[in-house]
């Protein structure tokens, strides 16, 4: 459900940054490991909300950052795969892991092209 509010935030931010005479074809979003977004659901809401706007039909490119498991003993870093339980034990030395994550969620960039004559207003 919260994908609806995130789609809204993406659309709002992208349209606000759009120069005159252009339309949006692709939007890149970066999400920290802490952020839970289901891309399929986000896409659906975005298509719905963007209909008739200069972002209609834009592709969403979601770059989700992985969490890092940092060993408190040997310092070795292993990737934490989203949706799997956090592994408390370091695979390298058997020491205790600490999960290192970030919670950013931002619009990184967008791809735009010239509006064709007669295009959406």
């Amino acid at each position: 459900m919260h994908e609806a509010s995130i789609a809204h935030g993406i659309l709002r931010g992208a349209l606000a940054a759009l120069p005159d005479g252009k339309k949006i074809t692709r939007i890149t979003i970066v999400a920290g490991a802490q952020v839970s977004v289901v891309l399929e659901s986000l896409d659906l809401y975005f298509q719905e909300l963007s209909r008739g706007s200069l972002a209609e039909g834009a592709l969403l490119d979601l770059q989700q950052r992985a969490g890092k498991l940092v060993c408190k003993s040997c310092g070795q870093i292993h990737e934490h795969v989203r949706g799997t339980p956090v592994s408390m034990i370091c695979k390298t030395c058997g020491g205790a892991n600490r999960l290192d994550i970030t919670n950013e969620l931002f619009l990184e960039s967008m791809e735009v092209e010239d509006l064709q004559d007669g295009g959406a207003k």
């Binding site: 935030g9 759009l18 950013e104 969620l105 619009l107 791809e111 735009v112």
Partner: peptide, 11 residues
């Protein structure tokens, strides 16, 4: 053309 935005989605 690519435009950098770098702004929080939930701003």
């Amino acid at each position: 053309m690519n435009i950098k935005i770098r702004q929080a989605v939930l701003a």
